[in-house]
């Protein structure tokens, strides 16, 4: 990748981020009256039961095929509503974008290809990289909550960045536009983000290990 190209991409991302932040602020302001968001972010009211309850909703989404399939426990992505191992012996590779002749973007386009069983697509299509695998598959709610909160395992994200990732990341958003024949996560993205926020606002408690 040449320097000018990547700087164009960066510029684009900055613009996009600015726009999304702006929109988010507007949306958040419009929700100010909602009870779930009444708590002042700077002075959270800790509520372990409420927090855990919110996380369990978050967990259901993260463990839905649309999210989990690209956060597998092994080196291969998963496919389909039954989360079977991706056919074609596809592997994560170092950067999470596949290996050699089996790079994700060789089949997965910038957008979903129309039709049942056709490759879904997104410009960022891929798995987490090898050094930060962010495994969802097989994780208990307890394990997943701790993992998501741990900057060493979540891509170095603060809680605010986590919320931003869930709310605004383009690839995360694909989960709610998965193309023909794929089921949606169990709640809308806005409901999901609200639960993420609630979980964190109420203290980001992890469900108990049992």
């Amino acid at each position: 990748m040449s320097a000018p190209l990547s700087s164009i991409a960066t510029t684009k991302r900055v613009v996009l981020f600015t726009m999304v932040s702006f929109i988010t602020v507007i949306i958040m302001q419009s929700f100010k009256t909602e009870t779930s968001l009444k708590n002042d972010d700077t002075k959270p009211v800790k509520d372990s039961i409420g927090s855990v309850k919110a996380f369990m909703s978050v967990y259901k989404v993260l463990m839905s095929p649309r999210c989990m399939n690209c956060h597998p426990s092994g080196e291969a992505p998963l496919q389909g509503d039954d989360s079977h191992i991706h056919t074609m012996n596809i592997k994560r590779g170092t950067d999470g974008k596949g290996m050699y002749a089996a790079r994700c973007s060789n089949c997965h386009q910038n957008e979903n290809t129309a039709g049942l069983h056709m490759p879904p697509g997104n410009p960022k299509w891929g798995l987490p990289p090898a050094k930060m695998k962010m495994v969802f598959q097989g994780r208990t709610p307890h394990q997943l909550a701790l993992q998501i909160l741990d900057p060493k395992q979540n891509g170095g994200r603060t809680k605010a960045q986590l919320i931003d990732h869930m709310a605004n990341d383009e690839l995360v958003g694909w989960g709610w536009h998965p193309g023909d024949g794929r089921t949606l996560p169990p709640m809308s993205r806005s409901a999901f983000v609200a639960q993420v926020k609630l979980w964190i606002a109420k203290g980001a408690y992890a469900p108990s290990a049992n």
């Binding site: 790079r103 060789n106 089949c107």
Partner: peptide
Amino acid sequence: AAQCGACTVHMNGEAVR
């Protein structure tokens, strides 16, 4: 449907279907 690879060509060096 990007299942068989018979249509593979190189695009900027990558083996796209």
